[in-house]
Design a binder for these strands. Structure first.
Length: 820
RNA sequence: GCCGAAGUGGCGGAACUGGCAGACGCGCUGGACUCAAAAUCCAGUGCCCUCCGGGGCGUGUGGGUUCGAUUCCCACCUUCGGCACCA
């Protein structure tokens, strides 16, 4: 740039490669575990970003995600904490398997090739990661412990196998967990899912529903919307189970309702088409054909269709007895009642439930009002829909009439309980987590099916159950593992007889539900992790990732942690104390996607401008939690800034000014203000764009007064403050300033004494409008400030003939003269 | 439909607890350097008016509270996200 000055040009490529090598050689970011049996003296911080799926290509979302974590980790480490910041790969799963099917070859080869590629790109970004703790979920050394944990869950009854209606993705040829179905479509491929009844493996996450809600109180800082989404997903609702009877069949049919106070308004009864009682109910009746026909048609409807069409159903010809008044009401079958929720049957109260009302309207069923809104003085109109409201009272409900709704609920439930016709219950929307998948590239389920002994766990000594080698990965409705006949055929660990291995593999979300624990103790070959070491590092202090896992991964990991806590494997109940969701980086107005051709590749920019400029830019763009738009010209601004800083440092080295700043000067004060701002912004506010602005301001100030006695001090501080954001160039400049190892240098602390000002700019307002600004001594009294304002000629012009009726003084800020 | 978040210059954004709206950066305009260009540096840059002193308006829209509102309250508009036959 200025070769005639002999100043070396800022060349990010060389600098970045050099410092990455130094960090590796010196194991700069390796953190040892506290020695056995002794808790480390140093306070710890666990900074973690969500486990990446190794697609082979790093994208901008990763860059933002890991750079955020990097800044936090650097600052924490330089503030004296032992910082755990590991990295690994969520390597099992469909993308690698599908790529292998498409291109031929083995999913493992695809996955490992991708890992190599993405690791190289990550290292290029210079993140301060302890690479010695790297793990990948597809390695037998890892999935051995996934299996081990599965068996502990199995022993404790957290895992079970049952036949149940499940969601099936016809494209991926596998079942899905409820959480992986979005609007009736497969979360991965968007194919409409089908309903099937299959025998599958489940985690009993529903047993933890209440704790997943209640223990949110243990979390330090999670985005409110994530908590809301989880609460909605769990869907806890308090109500009652009410038992209706069909005497002719000697059958009891319980329903769940949140409105037991409306029991007298039940005018019909509805069973889900899948309800097991339906065939017996209509057997040999004139309605049999029509009802079974309806059931068949409902079964063929897609979830989407079922949810969007007009409500329909068929009468069964049977009646059922309302336990409170003995009334006989007709039983219908309709698919607006879902088998998965409650008991698969409802009492229909059309006057007080919109869905029941719509159904009653269509089929001309009676509508009986039994609750009147607050302040109803005349008898309620019959046959209409009455929305739920505060202060409502029961009517036409025998002895319960007149009770306010909440008391009515209580009284009716008490009566039901006394008569053995019901009880208070809580229903959840949350379903158990379906964990088995009919695909190859996943963790094998370590179970043996024995004709004599049933489901037998594989003994711990035989773990891992390795994935068998097969020729064909294409799924055909059953797991490709089933084709490895020799592998499938085994002996029962319990009785020694012939037995067959489980051929389903686990949902990859199982792998990622405990990876944050493996990082504590990644090479342990006797246990998934040592409890002491886990209890030292965990819970994660700062977790960072995308909002897409608001329910899926985050709910599963919380469940796993709680179950492990119950089993005595860990001493804490929540895995992630603070959660941060970064926004998405868009380009050309849309989410980056290969199919749209608008992907901005980080590597390209790292090569062109350096990783430091890229890291700075993704943070400088705007608030980290907001979605934002990539601008090529934007990164050029950060490039320019680094060049400017580079020149400034060299100029200061040339000048050789004193490193210690004399106190009291404007530049010295600005420097301390910058330290305070940069530190506070990250630590308290978790914002990353304004600290960069603050350092830019400081650099601008230095450039304006390079001969200031505080210039050298200001320059060194700027380099030190920018280190978490642009670590390579900061390290290089630090060395050129005559120091070493900036990453080990304590984080700067602002000197309170230097922050104090002797004068300030007093803003003078007249009737709320700024009319003048004057310098004022910091220690002036309120009266003196008002005098100063009154004497301002500019303010006077606006006071004119009027009199000052009031003066508002904000100390060290402004005076507002109210003139009337 | 319900719940939530957001709306500020040409653009990304700042203003943290009700007290100077537009920090920082991009872009643009003018100038310096150069044979020229790039790079760099300097100055300017919300809109309107101006006698060049300054004045008026301005944070989605309309109202309110207040000495004072981007910030608090009410209503509405727009965008985005979540939930949505859950009994």
């Amino acid at each position: 740039m200025f070769p005639e000055d002999g100043m070396e040009r800022y060349d990010p490529k060389t600098i970045e490669a050099r410092w990455q090598r130094v960090w590796d050689d010196e194991r700069a970011f390796h953190v040892p575990n506290p020695a056995e049996g002794e808790i480390s003296e140093r306070e710890k911080t666990y900074v973690l970003e969500m486990l990446p799926y190794p697609s082979g290509e790093l994208h901008m979302g990763h860059v933002l995600n890991y750079t955020l974590g990097d800044v936090v980790a650097h600052m924490r480490r330089r503030s004296g904490y032992a910082v755990l910041r590991p990295m690994g790969y969520d390597a099992f799963g469909l993308p690698a398997e599908n790529a292998a099917i498409r291109e031929g070859g083995h999913p493992r080869v695809v996955a490992e090739r991708n890992i190599e590629a993405i690791r190289a790109q990550m290292r290029r970004m210079g993140w301060a990661i302890d690479w010695e703790r790297e793990v990948s979920t597809h390695e037998p050394e890892y999935y051995r412990w996934t299996q081990w944990l599965f068996l502990r869950f199995f022993e404790h009854g957290h895992t079970y196998r049952k036949e149940a209606p499940v969601k099936w993705c016809p494209k991926d040829q596998t079942v899905l967990a409820n959480e992986q179905v979005i609007d009736g479509r497969c979360e991965r491929c968007g194919t409409e899912v089908e309903a099937k009844s299959l025998e599958q493996w489940f985690f009993r996450i529903t047993a933890y529903a209440d704790r997943l809600l209640d223990e949110m109180s243990l979390l330090e800082d999670w985005p409110e919307r994530v908590l809301t989404m989880q609460r909605n997903w769990i869907g806890r609702s308090e109500g009652a189970e009410v038992v209706f009877r069909i005497d002719e069949l000697d059958a009891e049919v319980p329903v769940f309702t949140t409105r037991p106070d409306t029991l007298y308004g039940a005018t019909f009864f509805v069973l889900a088409p899948e309800h097991p009682l339906v065939p017996r109910l209509v057997e040999g009746t004139p309605q049999e054909r029509e009802v079974l026909d309806y059931v068949r048609r409902a079964g063929a409807r897609s979830t989407v269709e079922r949810e969007t069409k007009e409500k329909d159903g068929v009468p069964t010809g049977r009646t059922i007895t309302n336990p409170v008044n003995g009334e006989q009401i007709p039983v219908w079958v309709a698919d607006y009642v879902l088998m998965e929720y409650g008991t698969g049957a409802i009492m229909a109260v059309p006057a007080h439930d919109e869905r029941d009302f719509a159904f009653a309207e269509r089929y001309g069923l009676p509508v009986r009002v039994v609750v009147e809104p607050a302040g109803g003085d005349s008898a309620p109109e019959q046959g209409v829909f009455v929305a739920h409201s505060a202060g409502e009272r029961l009517v036409d409900s025998e002895q319960f009439s007149g009770l306010p709704s909440p008391e009515g609920k209580r009284a009716i439930v008490e009566r039901l309980e006394r008569d053995g016709n019901g009880k208070q219950v809580i229903a959840y929307r949350l379903r158990d987590w379906l964990l088995s998948r009919q695909r190859y590239w996943g963790c094998p389920i370590p179970i043996v099916h024995c004709g004599a002994c049933g489901l037998v766990p594989v003994p711990e000594s035989e773990l891992p159950v390795l994935l068998p080698e097969v020729e064909e990965f294409l799924p055909k409705g059953r797991s490709p593992l089933a084709a490895a006949e020799e592998w499938v055929r085994t002996t029962c660990p319990s009785c020694g007889g012939e037995a067959r291995r489980e051929t389903d593999t686990m949902d990859t979300f199982v792998d990622s539900s405990w990876y944050f624990l493996r990082y504590c103790d990644p090479r342990n070959d006797e246990a998934p992790f040592g409890r002491d070491v886990a209890d030292y590092w965990l819970p994660v202090n700062q977790y960072i990732g995308g909002i897409e896992h608001a329910i899926l991964h985050l709910l599963y990991a919380r469940f796993f942690t709680k179950a492990m806590n119950d089993m005595g494997l860990v001493g804490f109940r929540e895995p992630f104390l603070r959660l941060f969701n970064q926004g998405m980086i868009h380009h050309l107005g849309a989410k980056m996607a290969k199919s749209k051709g608008n992907v901005v590749e980080p590597n390209l920019y790292a090569d062109r401008h350096g990783a430091d400029a890229l890291r700075l830019y993704v943070l400088f763009m705007g608030p980290a939690e907001q979605d934002k738009e990539w601008q090529d010209t934007g990164i050029e601004g950060t490039v320019r800034f680094l060049h400017r800083l580079w020149r400034l440092v060299h100029e200061q080295v040339e000048r050789g000014g004193p490193a210690q700043a004399p106190s009291g000067g404007a530049l010295a004060r600005k420097t301390h203000e910058t330290i305070a701002k940069v530190t506070d912004d990250v630590q308290r506010r978790f914002v990353f764009n304004t600290p960069i602005s603050a350092v830019m301001e400081l650099v601008n100030e230095i450039a304006r007064a390079p001969e200031d006695p505080a210039a050298r001090f200001a320059t060194e501080t700027a380099v030190s403050l920018i280190q978490p954001y642009a670590p390579h160039v900061a390290e290089e400049l630090w060395q050129r300033l005559g120091h070493e190892r900036l990453w080990e240098e304590p984080w700067p602390v602002a000197d309170e004494a230097q922050l104090r000002r002797e004068t300030f700019e007093l803003v003078i307002q007249v009737n709320g409008k700024v009319r003048d600004r004057v310098q004022a001594a910091a220690d002036l009294s309120r009266e003196e400030l008002v005098e100063l304002a009154r004497n301002s000629p500019r303010a006077r012009a606006f006071i004119d003939g009027g009199s000052v009726r009031q003066a508002i003084v904000v100390p060290r800020k402004l005076v507002n003269l109210v003139v009337g």
